[in-house]
Nucleic acid binder design. Sequence first.
DNA 1: CAGCAGATAGACT
DNA 2: GTCTATCTGCTGC
Length: 198
Amino acid sequence: MEQKADFVPLDESFFQQPTLQLAESLLGCLLVKETKEGTAAGFIVETEAYRGPLDRAAHSFNNRRTKRTEIMFHEAGRIYTYVMHTHCLVNVVTGEEGVPEAVLIRAVEPYEGIDLMFERRGGTSMKNLTSGPGKLTKAMGITMEDYGNRFDQRPLYITKGFTPEDISTGPRIGIDNSGEAKHYPWRFWVTGNQYVSR
DNA sequence: CAGCAGATAGACT
DNA sequence: GTCTATCTGCTGC
């Protein structure tokens, strides 16, 4: 009876929305990671959409299909983790089988397992704990182990959170060498939330 | 606030 | 073998 029944993963049909719409729908949802050290959870407050063939900023631009991007060609709801420099980033795969699109989770608001997150992140402030894509994966213990799993089942999954009052959009971050694509307003965040990366 | 080091996986010559 | 990358934290003006 140790098991918490509070967190019920979202149904897979949730992920079967157009990528831009899903990026917006994900705001306010609760991202949960269960490990043997404990459970860490946080509300998603910032996302970015990456749209395969059309999007120069996406790893899957021009349908580039490699070992790394392979998972983006799968059905919606898969987990795409990617190691960048010293950090791991986490994406939600969207689109139907064969359509390489994804949503990057850029920031969450800490909700449960906050002590555990501080332990993993070392000395830092509450505001700095999960306010960035590399920070949140470290705080929650998300790694390449999660690559290819599904967001509708443990140990890494998404469940219902709150409904954001107001949502902002703007250009994405960290894709300066992507030509035109860098101006696309495919970044979404909860307006005014202090855990948004910038 | 600009500049840069850090450290790993995968693409490309 | 070399180069780039969906970033972060620290240093020095």
